[in-house]
Nucleic acid binder design. Sequence first.
DNA 1: TTGTTAATTGTTATAATATAACATCATGTA
DNA 2: TACATGATGTTATATTATAACAATTAACAA
Lengths: 130, 130
Amino acid sequence: MQKQETLSKNQKIILDLIEKSDQPLKAYSILFDVKKKGINAPLQVYRALDKLVEIGKIHKIESRNAFIACKNSKCQIAKATVFSICESCEDVTEIHDHKLSEHLRDFKDNKGMKYNKYNLEFFGLCKKCI
Amino acid sequence: MQKQETLSKNQKIILDLIEKSDQPLKAYSILFDVKKKGINAPLQVYRALDKLVEIGKIHKIESRNAFIACKNSKCQIAKATVFSICESCEDVTEIHDHKLSEHLRDFKDNKGMKYNKYNLEFFGLCKKCI
DNA sequence: TTGTTAATTGTTATAATATAACATCATGTA
DNA sequence: TACATGATGTTATATTATAACAATTAACAA
């Protein structure tokens, strides 16, 4: 069997839901929402989430245990994510900053570690909440 | 009452434990280890952890739900953390890179957000695991 | 030194997040 | 066909974290 090109039924249902939200969704809130579509168990949700994260269609906001759709058309940046998070209204935005990405991509520590991924989360107050 | 200068009993016990480990510890493994010292409930651990994070004595590794001591003598950087994480052996190291810190500190998005904190986690393979 | 206040503690219960284990089904390829 | 792989469905359970409430302790001011 080849690497899946198309998404499976559950993966589609869950990606749809996440893409319709501009804010991160939590696994159990997703579960609640997709019960009407016949997805009944946490594991079904987590499996789809794992896959979607793996192929870069969604990202996990680690500090919030929540999942947000990747807006980048080609989803090449699944392994290099930057988010800003408002600590008041919890609004989350994915950041694409060329210069910042360059710095992060080029970062080398002095321990000879080989990086293949990073995740950066900025916290603060958004315009509305300042 | 003024802001605590000194740590409370539970906070000390738990900080001691975390400082003795050079790797991140999980809350329930901490709980297990401090039961002999009379700390019996998860909440007692989480409350101490919250406080220690707040004052910058420890950091939470968000992607691992684990806590590591801050090695920085003055712990001024509780709000600006960078870690490297080996995905094979799970070794975690706190990174202090002046240039990188500058870039992150100076980062401005185009949405007028005011940042007061960030957390960056690099993933990859350490020297031993490559 | 005593009353006030805030921080901390202790305890029970429960919420929220995530995975193990196993059986079955679907699909592409030898 | 039959084999391998990926996805599904299901039950149970593991892991991480907080709610709610009562009691105690520590700093400070009157």
